[in-house]
């Protein structure tokens, strides 16, 4: 068995430092790895990244993250990533890592992802350049996720994103904003490779549990959704 802890949308700044730490010190009792599903900071500044490094660094388990839209706000992504990685936090964007656990190998592939909406009611690469660029961004992100999942040398694969791959886990959000919360293209990428679990955040008013059309479990771990410091999922055996 592989134990995966996950949380997203922690939005750290100096006012939050220390709130998560007592629970984080206990992660090794509950899990083999901790996944962070984006929106680690409020505005994506270097000083906020140091808050994340202090709160989520130096844990006794590997910490693997993707960034979220908040982490892009101040256009300091390379510096933010550098700070997080200096604290031992792996930051994925179209990339993956394989972790050795006592339950076997765990592969995690991640992207931030982007919006566009869900099958039958989605934005398309048509019309104005701004619209084409919007959907193109999502399509490229989904392609990177599929490639990163496929490249994982592990029988157990987890897809990590900030934006949602399915609408199931958005229930509770206004349907009008679903296109800004995720894209079916991410779900299709996940279903293109045998995947055990998909983790995302972003939808604070959404629902924890859903599945892709291909049957992969999806979990929305946005902090206001799970309502504790992190959720823990137990994975078994090889991906189906």
């Amino acid at each position: 068995m592989i134990r995966v802890a996950a949380v997203g949308d922690v939005h750290l700044d100096a006012d939050v430092v220390g709130r998560f730490r007592p629970a984080l010190e206990r992660v090794p009792d509950h899990a083999d790895v901790l996944l962070l599903a984006g929106d680690l900071t409020r505005h994506g500044t270097v000083s906020e990244a140091w808050c994340v490094a202090k709160e989520f660094g130096d844990l006794a388990v590997p910490v693997i993250a993707v960034l979220g839209n908040h982490d892009y706000h101040c256009n300091e992504v390379p510096a933010v990533v550098q700070v997080l990685e200096s604290a031992g936090i792996a930051v994925l964007e179209g990339t993956g890592v394989v972790v050795e656990t006592t339950g076997g190998k765990l592969g995690v592939a991640g992207v931030k992802g982007f919006g566009g909406g869900f099958a039958g009611r989605c934005a398309t690469e048509f019309g104005e350049p701004e619209m084409k660029a919007f959907v193109h961004t999502t399509r490229e992100s989904a392609d990177r996720l599929a490639a990163a999942l496929d490249a994982l040398d592990s029988p157990v694969r987890v897809a990590l994103s900030h934006y949602a791959p399915v609408p199931d886990t958005l229930v509770g959000e206004p349907p009008e904003i679903y296109p800004f919360l995720g894209s079916y293209l991410l779900g299709q990428a996940i279903d293109s490779v045998p995947t055990t679990l998909a983790i995302h955040g972003h939808a604070h008013a959404g629902t924890e549990r859903g599945t892709t059309p291909g049957g992969v479990r999806v979990r929305n771990v946005a902090h206001p959704v799970i309502k504790h410091a992190y959720s823990v999922y137990h994975l078994h055996g090889e991906s189906t």
Binding site: P22, H30, I226, S231, V232, H236
Partner: peptide, 14 residues
């Protein structure tokens, strides 16, 4: 204000 206690149980994804 979202609570930050550790989870009381895990979900087993059989």
């Amino acid at each position: 204000v979202t609570r930050t206690h550790p989870p009381t149980e895990a979900e087993d994804l059989l």
